[in-house]
Nucleic acid binder design. Structure first.
Lengths: 156, 156
DNA sequence: TATTGTTATACTCTATAACTATA
DNA sequence: TATAGTTATAGAGTATAACAATA
C-alpha cells in the first residue's frame, strides 16, 4: 500500500531529476517499494510482513538452524531477531530448542502449523518473481537477478 | 553500518536457500543494504540520512517545488514529509514559502547554506553509482540501471 | 575472556485519522 | 466539498549498550 502512482501524478509539473534518475540508491528504493506493493497485494491479507516469510522459509528448509546464523544471513540484528522469533513463537509457528552441545545458543524449527503456513503461501510469495507479474521479459528477469546478486555480493 | 559480512560467516554451516536465492524481494533487500553501507561510509560523517539527500537534491534542481509533489515523487507520505521538511528547516538548509496563488500549499527552496551543503556532498552521493565502486562493469551497470528503472516503472 | 542471546531504550520510517486553512 | 498540509499516535525496523548464561 505504498502507492503505485508515485510518478506521473495528475496536476504536477514535470521536474528535473538530473543524475538522480540514474542513481542506484534511488532506483533500488523505488524497486523495493514496487516489490512491497506486490507483496502486500498478494500476502497482505495473511498478516505476513515482508521479512517474516524469509525467516520462516529458511527455517523450513533448514530445521534446527541457529538463531544467530539466521540473523546474520538476513542481516537482522540479534536484538531484533529476538523479537521476530518471539512473535512467530507466540503465533505458534516455530519452536525454540536449547541444544545440549552449546547451551548458549537457540536452534529453531517450524511447528506443523508453521510448515502448513509456509506451504500455503509459498506460491504467492515466489510468484512475485515470475516474469508474468512485472514488466520484464524472462530474459531480462534472469539478467536482473544475476546483477542484483552480483551487486549485493550474494554468492549462495 | 549494516555489516558487509552478512554472508559467508566463519563458523556457520552452509544452508539451503531454495528459490529464495533468486527471489527479487530478497535480492532487492540485500542490494539496498549494500547501498546503505556505501552511503554511510561516504556520507555518514555529515549526519545525512539516505533519503534526505534526495529531498535536498530535487529542491536544489527545482526551487519552489511544492511539498506535496515532492512527497509523491519520493513516496514520502504527507505526515512524514512535514517532519522531514521541518528538520531541514531547523538545520537552516531550506525555506518554506506560502505562495499567493494557493495559500494552502507550501513551496520549498534551499537556502545558501543548503545549496552549499548539496554542492559539497554531490560528488560523494553520486560517486556510489560509479562502476569503480561496486563489482559491476560499466556495461553491467548500465543494464542494471535500465532494468531497475523498468522494474520500478520509472520513466523520468 | 569471548560468545549467544536477551532486555531496555531510542530513533527513523511508515501508516492512519482527525484537524486547519484554504480553495 | 475537496485539497494541502499539520498534528497526534502507533507500529515496525533498526541501532546501541548493558546484561546473564554458557563456553
Amino acid at each position: 500500500m505504498t502507492g503505485e502512482l508515485t510518478l506521473e501524478q495528475s496536476g504536477d509539473e514535470s521536474i528535473d531529476y538530473g543524475p538522480l534518475s540514474n542513481s542506484l540508491g534511488f532506483l533500488l528504493r523505488i524497486a523495493q517499494l514496487r516489490n512491497f506493493d506486490q507483496f502486500y497485494s498478494r500476502l497482505g491479507d495473511s498478516g505476513l510482513r515482508p521479512g517474516e516469510f524469509s525467516v520462516m522459509w529458511l527455517i523450513y528448509l533448514n530445521p534446527g538452524i541457529r538463531q544467530g546464523q539466521l540473523g546474520r544471513i538476513l542481516s537482522i540484528k540479534p536484538a531484533h531477531m529476538t523479537k521476530v522469533v518471539r512473535r512467530l513463537e507466540d503465533l505458534g509457528r516455530l519452536e525454540r530448542r536449547i541444544p545440549e552441545e552449546d547451551r548458549r545458543s537457540v536452534r529453531l524449527s517450524l511447528t506443523d502449523k508453521g510448515r502448513h503456513f509456509v506451504q500455503a503461501h509459498e506460491a504467492d510469495f515466489f510468484g512475485e518473481d515470475s516474469y508474468h507479474n512485472h514488466g520484464l521479459t524472462q530474459k531480462e528477469t534472469e539478467t536482473f537477478i544475476r546483477l542484483l546478486r552480483k551487486y549485493g555480493g550474494f554468492t549462495a
